[in-house]
């Protein structure tokens, strides 16, 4: 059925060349989990915006399980300091959700700024994360917030979003089957501040969260994203009791210097990228601390 030999090029000759598959369209999570156990190599399909592109890049699954009709994957809840967002929630739904707006308003704003209007209506949280494209923004945004992915029917129950880029993880080495991504959770109880800077996209984006550390002080987590390299997690624990005690210049510098050499690419050397990430972190921290004069 394929009009072009696999590996002959990135782009199929036409839309007619997509290889067919056996389709399953479960209407409940239980049914989807059973299907994924029955077909461990099946592709799980949500909004399909990215998946169709993957087909055009050579993906040829024998079985596809579409989770579009599973209503329970579209729920958003905010209970006891934990925001839980279903994997089938679209970007547009999340950015307008009362639960997201009331618990982490900057997350709603960041979510509503990614991609385009058309993609925001169709693209889903689950698809954005599990397509594992460097340039997609939700892994960057949600990693800084310490987001956890919850699964059913596979070999794992939960994984941090930051694990999407772990070396030697199950993602790259086929160490197991993750099953169905059901939701993402974000701890909002200890969260003091969150912000996202995408004004320098695609060269660099930065999401930054400040939390109360469980032991003492404050933890600043920043994630640096770009078009061409995986997101990198940067972190600093400060001996502060209040967010206004953080110094944007020094904390920004401490975070930026953690960026590994491999973050440099053809769009910017590592020196330039560290400088840029430092500026973006300072900008966010100045906003977090309410001290615009300390952007540096």
């Amino acid at each position: 059925m394929r009009g072009q030999k696999l590996g002959a090029g990135l782009i199929a000759q036409s839309q007619s060349a997509l290889p067919p598959f056996t389709l399953h369209r479960p209407t409940s999570l239980g049914e989807a989990v059973a299907l994924s156990r029955q077909h461990p190599k099946a592709v799980i399909a949500a909004g399909c915006s990215d998946l169709v592109a993957q087909f055009r890049e050579g993906l040829e699954p024998e079985v596809l399980i579409s989770v579009q009709r599973i209503k329970e994957l579209r729920a958003i809840k905010n209970d006891a300091g934990v925001l839980r967002i279903g994997s089938m929630v679209s970007h547009a739904e999340a950015s307008r959700s009362h639960e997201v707006l009331s618990s982490v308003p900057a997350l709603a704003a960041a979510w509503g700024s990614i991609a385009t209007v058309r993609i925001r209506y169709r693209g889903t949280l689950g698809g954005n994360l599990l397509s594992r494209r460097y340039r997609y923004e939700m892994p960057v945004i949600l990693s800084a917030l310490g987001g956890q992915m919850l699964f059913q029917g596979g070999d794992v129950e939960a994984l941090p979003i930051s694990s999407l880029w772990d070396r030697d993880s199950l993602w790259d080495r086929n160490l197991g089957n993750v099953g169905i991504l059901t939701a993402v959770t974000v701890d909002t109880a200890s969260l003091l501040w969150f912000g996202y800077e995408r004004s320098m996209r695609p060269v660099s984006t930065v999401s930054l969260a400040v939390r109360k550390d469980p032991v003492a002080g404050l933890t600043v987590s920043a994630v640096c994203g770009s078009e061409y390299r995986q997101p990198f997690l940067l972190s600093h624990t400060a001996e502060a009791t209040d967010i206004t005690e953080l110094d944007p210049v020094s904390v920004g510098g401490v975070l930026a210097v953690q960026l590994p050499d491999e973050a440099g690419d053809y769009a910017g050397s590592i020196d330039y990228r560290r400088h840029l990430v430092g500026v973006l972190c300072r900008r966010l921290l100045a906003e977090a601390t309410g001290n615009k004069g300390k952007e540096g």
Partner: peptide, 27 residues
């Protein structure tokens, strides 16, 4: 583009704009 980027294939599905090139017919 067949990649949901250019929007030349935009149609409305239940009033919302959708890239017809990147949406499976079963949906």
């Amino acid at each position: 583009c067949e990649r949901s980027v250019c929007g030349a294939c935009t149609v409305l599905v239940d009033d919302l704009p959708v890239a017809a090139c990147s949406t499976f017919a079963f949906d």
